[in-house]
């Protein structure tokens, strides 16, 4: 682990539901993610992993503590500043893909560049990203014309476009069959081997087993943080026909 991408210190987040009920979603979370790591965040419902994911992705700000993202303190930034940070540093991959249905694949991939970054060669870069996830031949297809796995690959291409500091994936395989899941995980592993930092929220141990490190959340705290000695290789599983068997 060299230079730190994410550095959380004493992060707290409290929600108020109605007038009386307060939920301490995060209670003093400390977490470091170094460049080039592949981390899974696990935990049961209500453990705070979604809140942590929102804070990590700068979709939400913590109530207390400090958060350095790529060395920048993003704790108390305005909405528009946070939008800029998301654009530059975070590539999101969601469980439900979250593609714009009326745009085709390449237009979806181009989206982050509309809002920031280098506008030149937008099309070429989007094309390169799509080729990287193996969809170079589907660039003019609408999301509705693509399978779930293909849609998720478009979403990954979109996440890659601005060359973010971190790819943040929220249950990326949650809606996919095991064959497609394995393909998506293979892409993440390939990207990680090429040096990308990947943080993935999941509740499936099988999926988490592909990561290099697993952080387990419980009751708003990091309960366990351990390295995976021998991460499973998605490529090997595809070769062995795991997906095909199901």
């Amino acid at each position: 682990m060299n230079q730190s991408v994410v550095q959380l210190r004493g992060i707290t987040k409290t929600y108020h539901i109605g007038r009386d009920i307060t939920v301490n979603a995060l209670r003093a979370v400390d977490l470091d993610v170094g460049a080039g790591e592949f981390v899974a965040i696990m935990g049961p419902s209500g453990s705070g992993k979604s809140t942590l994911m929102n804070v990590l992705g700068c979709l939400d700000v913590a109530d207390g503590g400090t958060y350095l993202l790529a060395g920048e303190n993003v704790g108390k930034l305005s909405d528009d500043k946070l939008a800029g940070i998301r654009n530059k540093h975070v590539g999101f991959v969601f469980q439900t893909y979250n593609l714009l249905s009326r745009l085709n694949a390449i237009e979806n991939v181009e989206l982050p560049l509309i809002y920031g970054g280098d506008r030149h060669a937008r099309r070429q870069r989007a094309l390169a990203a799509l080729e990287q996830v193996g969809l170079g031949d589907r660039i003019h297809h609408r999301p509705s014309e693509l399978s779930g796995g293909q849609q998720q690959r478009v979403a990954i291409a979109r996440a890659l476009l601005n060359d973010p500091s971190m790819i943040l994936a929220d249950e990326p395989t949650g809606n996919l069959d095991s064959r497609s899941s394995a393909e998506i995980l293979a892409i993440f592993q390939r990207l990680n081997e090429a040096g990308k930092t990947v943080v993935m929220v999941t509740h499936e141990p099988d999926v988490a087993a592909h990561c290099k490190r697993i952080v387990r959340m419980r009751d708003g705290l990091v309960a366990r943080d351990e390295l995976v000695p021998h991460p499973r290789r998605a490529e090997d599983e595809i070769a062995a026909g795991i997906g095909a068997a199901e």
Partner: peptide, 13 residues
Amino acid sequence: REIGIRKAVGARR
């Protein structure tokens, strides 16, 4: 949802 997606990838207000 589209607005949410656009905001997630960096759209400002």
